[in-house]
Amino acid sequence: MKYALVTGGSRGIGRAVCIQLAQDSEYHILINYNSNKVAAEEVKAAVEAHGKTATLLPFNVTDATAVQTALDTWQDENKDAIIEVIVNNAGITKDGMFMWMPQEDWHTVINTSLNGFFNVTNHLVQKLLRNRYGRIINMVSVSGLKGNPGQTNYAAAKGAVIAATKSLSQEIAKRNITVNAVAPGFIKSDMTADLDEKELKKMIPANRFGAVEEVAHLVSFLASKKASYITGEVISINGGIYS
């Protein structure tokens, strides 16, 4: 059986991606989450409502040992299972002006987005190479492309993942494995709930925040065989705010 793994799959964009992949593909969905089991269970139920199957896979992407243990244990229990799609979606923000930023806020954000990408992808990439097929999709941000005041840590993390996306894509393209990044702008989700939407949408040519489902459609396309000649790309989805 073939699988798609979505990190941070219990809420927001990750939740929408799990449900969209269930609608668009034949993949069994692996829903990774860190602490919110109730939300993850709800996503599993939503996937199953579309007639597909899902498995909860709890681990903290920042903990390399926990990542390896969880994935290896799951693989041991599912000998014939093949993960073909990896969506590195787990990420957090700890916004604040750089001059007052505590070390912990710097490291936590870098660890989740950048080291989380490494811990999950590095552990699985050899299997993708052996299977000579795969899709790696990294959720980044408009902040990683243009920067954003108050988000030096987040911009640094996402900018690094963008550079890693471009490099890794060149290493493994010959094995039919694509590596792309999706860079959302302002999307309605838990992460943007505290933002002043009325004020911010004045900066957005489309004059609105995006929906998580719109991002999920793009991820689903990149995860499909239709996107086989797209690799090393950073695709913005931001209503025209920055291209």
Score class of each variant (00 low, 15 high):
Ala49Pro: 03
Met139His: 02
Asn88Tyr: 04
Asp190Cys: 10
Asp105Ile: 01
Asp105Tyr: 10
Glu171Ser: 07
Trp106Ala: 08
Val109Tyr: 05
Thr7Gly: 06
Asp63Met: 01
Gly8Arg: 03
Val234Trp: 07
Val140Arg: 00
Glu214Gln: 13
Ser228Met: 00
His123Gly: 02
Ala164Ile: 14
Ser113Val: 06
Ala160Glu: 08
Asn131Trp: 03
Gln75Ser: 14
Ser220His: 09
Val212Asp: 00
Ala49Gly: 14
Thr53His: 07
His107Ser: 13
His50Gly: 15
Asn176Glu: 13
Glu197Trp: 08
Arg11Ser: 15
Gly91His: 03
Val120Cys: 05
Ile13Phe: 11
His50Ile: 02
Ala54His: 03
Ile241Phe: 13
Lys202Arg: 14
Lys174Asp: 08
Gly14Phe: 02
Ile136Asn: 02
Ile137Val: 09
Pro58Gly: 08
Gly8Tyr: 04
Ser228His: 10
Ile92Ala: 11
Asn238Met: 06
Asn138Trp: 04
Ile13Gly: 08
Gly51Ile: 09
Asn138Pro: 00
Ala66Thr: 03
Val161Leu: 06
Leu56His: 06
Asp72Trp: 00
Glu214Thr: 12
Gln23Phe: 10
Thr62Phe: 02
Thr53Ser: 14
Thr73Phe: 00
Met101Leu: 12
Gly14Thr: 04
Phe98Met: 11
Ile241Thr: 11
Ser25Glu: 07
Gly91Gln: 06
Trp100Pro: 00
Phe186Ile: 13
Ala156Ser: 15
Val212Phe: 00
Ala156Glu: 03
Asp190Gly: 14
Ser113Arg: 00
Ala64His: 06
Leu57Val: 11
Asn153His: 10
Asn148Ala: 11
Asn119Arg: 02
Ile241Tyr: 09
Ala155His: 01
Ile83Trp: 03
Asn36Gly: 09
Asn153Pro: 01
Leu222Gln: 06
Leu30Val: 12
Ala206Met: 09
Asn180Gly: 10
Ile230Asp: 08
Val179Met: 10
Gln75Val: 01
Ile136Gln: 02
Val47Cys: 07
Thr53Gly: 06
Ser236Lys: 04
Ile172Met: 06
Ile172Tyr: 04
Phe186Asn: 14
Lys79His: 12
His28Tyr: 08
Phe59Gly: 01
Ala16Lys: 05
Tyr242Ser: 12
Thr152Met: 13
Ala64Tyr: 03
Val219Phe: 11
Ile237Glu: 07
Ile237His: 03
Asn131Gly: 08
Lys225Thr: 11
Ala157Cys: 00
Val109Cys: 08
Lys225Glu: 15
Ala156Phe: 02
Leu218Pro: 05
Gln170Asn: 12
Met99Val: 15
Ile92Gln: 12
Ala181Gly: 09
Lys52Ser: 09
Leu124Pro: 02
Met139Ser: 05
Asn180Ser: 12
Thr152Pro: 00
Leu57Tyr: 02
Asn115Leu: 11
Gln170His: 05
Tyr133Gly: 11
Ile29Asp: 07
Val182Ser: 04
Ile204Lys: 01
